[in-house]
Each structure stands twice: as structure tokens, then as C-alpha cells.
Computed example of a mutant assay.
Amino acid sequence: MAANPVTAIVGAGLVGSGWALVFARAGCQVQIFDPDEATRSRLLPWVRQSADELQTVGLITEADAVVARIQLCDTLEEALDGAAYVQESVFETVPTKTQASLAIDAAMGPDTIVGSSSSGIPASHFTSDCRNRERFLIAHPVNPPHLVPVVELVPAPWTDENAVTWTRELMDRVGQVPVQVTREIDGFILNRLQGALLNEAWALYDEGYASLADIDATISHGLGLRWSFMGPFETIDLNAPEGIADYSARLGGMYHQMAMQRTARAWPEKTVERAQQERRQALAAADLAGRRAWRDAMLARLAAFKKANGLGP
């Protein structure tokens, strides 16, 4: 692998533009393509603003150099020219990803590897007809990827093991935290864990046990504080005198009993409508973009703190 391989981004939305920053700040030349003119017009101003914020909090030292490494391309072929790695970040539907994968497949180099930002759709659903399908895999980030470093690597049944290894090494090199999933499963690891929490949160809200704000507070001012630097297994390992087995002996039965009280169900439409009203009272729709920018600023400061204290990549 070259020290700073040329990377291509296909899809310049929130996730794709975040990926551009990931690779550019690591020293890679980034070639990015999106067919939508409105999305293209927003890319470079957003990159400029975000790079300046990263420099302000000390996550990068030369914002100008990072921005200069990002090239907005007019065609897919131009973006893929010379690229060792492609990060596909198009809209998440099987037809859209199939179309994008086939187009990338036709234009990619003989050794190029392609990672998809799919957040839950396995690669086998949209790469089966690619002639180079052994070099396609899932590389699922968290949004925004330049501030939340974990990335799930999930091979399709036909993905070459060397492609997974190469991608893992690349993600390590550019400062991400790769999580290798051994085989396909809908939702992968992150969204299955997030889904379990969301399903219980919706059930508690639907049954009237607490407001959205209070349920959110149990995470933002409770569980989330620990989870920002340790996972669930380390958390329970430290929460019993003799560690994880002791915790299981003490509380495993309680968790099993709670799980048995639940059955899988769709999120109730009327409850979602009620939640929408409650959230819009707390945050007007016109203020959503500003709140996202605030979120990113807080994540940047948290990332800087973790880096300064040896808790980040």
C-alpha cells in the first residue's frame, strides 16, 4: 500500500463529504464525484468550514492543506482515475447502490478496492453482478465519519480476504477504528445494537413511562458518558467486584426477565407522530441544520479530548 493512496468518494452527501475529510487529513489525495449539482455546490464550502473547525480544536494543524487535497470531479471516471480505494456513499436503497456499484465496477482499476458506506444493507444485495465483486465490501461509518472514527468492515460471501485486510490497514492508517465483522448480517453490529436501544426507547415512550427528553437524558447524562470511552462489556466488567462473570451472576436474570417481557414490533405510527410533535416543540424544523452543526462541534471537542487523553485512534 502506498503511504497516502489516492482515494475516490462516490456520493458527496453528509457521509461522503465526511469521508473526504477523513482521507484528506491523513494526507491522501481525494477525488470526489456526485451527479447532483446542488450537492456538489455545497461540498467545498462545507469542507472549508469543517476543516477550520478541526484546526480550531486541535485535531488538524493545516486546514488549508487538507482542503487542497480534495478535488471535485465532473465525472465518475475522473474520480476513479488512479484511485486505489473507492468509498461509495450513495443513497441507501438496493437499486441505487446496485446502479452505483455497476458503474464503479466498469470504471475501476485492476487493483482498486471498493467499500460501501451502507448502514445496514449487506454487500451481497447489490454487488453480485459486478465483474470485480471480490473487491467489494461494506465499510460502514458512523455519521459524521470524520468525527466518529469507528467503521464496520463486512465482507460479502465472495469478498477476497485480502481486500478486507487491505481495507482494515487503510482504515488504521487514516485514523479510523475498524471493526471486522466475520460475515454478513442485516444491520451489521452497530445498528443492531442501536436498534435494540431504540426499540426499547420507543416501547417505554409508547407506554408512557417517560418523555422523550427524559429518556434521552438517561443516555446523554447517564449511559452515554461511560459509552463515550468504553463499550458494554467493559462497562459491566467494571460494575461488579469480581468482573463480568460476577455481574452476570448478579443481574443476568433481571436482564433476561426484561427481555422476555418484550416482543418485536414496528414502531407505532401514532407514537412516532407524537414524538415528532414533541421534538419539534423542543427544536423547530428550521433549526435542525444548526443543531447538527452544534452536534458536530461538540463531537469535535470530544474527539480532541479523547485524543489528548489517549482514548482515541
Rank of each mutant, 00 (worst) to 15 (best):
G13Q: 11
L193D: 06
D186C: 00
A156P: 00
W267E: 04
F91C: 10
L212Y: 11
I121Q: 05
P155C: 08
N162Y: 02
N162S: 14
R48L: 06
D287S: 15
K97F: 07
P35E: 07
A12F: 03
R279Y: 10
G175F: 02
D287Q: 09
R274T: 08
R133E: 02
T165P: 03
T112F: 13
E184K: 04
H221C: 02
W46S: 13
I104C: 06
T93A: 04
Y205M: 07
A293P: 04
F126L: 02
E37T: 02
I113E: 04
P35T: 03
L238E: 09
H256K: 06
I215Q: 05
S220L: 15
A240K: 04
F188C: 09
S89Q: 06
V15L: 02
G11Q: 11
Y85M: 12
D111S: 14
A26M: 03
A282D: 08
T93I: 02
Q71C: 02
L14R: 15
L311F: 05
A8N: 15
G115P: 14
E200M: 03
T7W: 03
F136W: 10
W166F: 12
A201T: 02
L288H: 12
N239W: 05
E78W: 00
G27A: 05
Y205E: 13
S119D: 01
R135C: 14
D64G: 10
R279L: 15
R250I: 01
R48Y: 07
L204V: 13
D160T: 00
S128C: 01
L283Q: 15
V151L: 08
A156Y: 01
L251D: 04
T165V: 02
L102M: 04
C28H: 15
P232S: 07
L288G: 01
P178W: 14
N309P: 15
F23G: 12
A106P: 04
E169T: 14
A284F: 10
K270I: 11
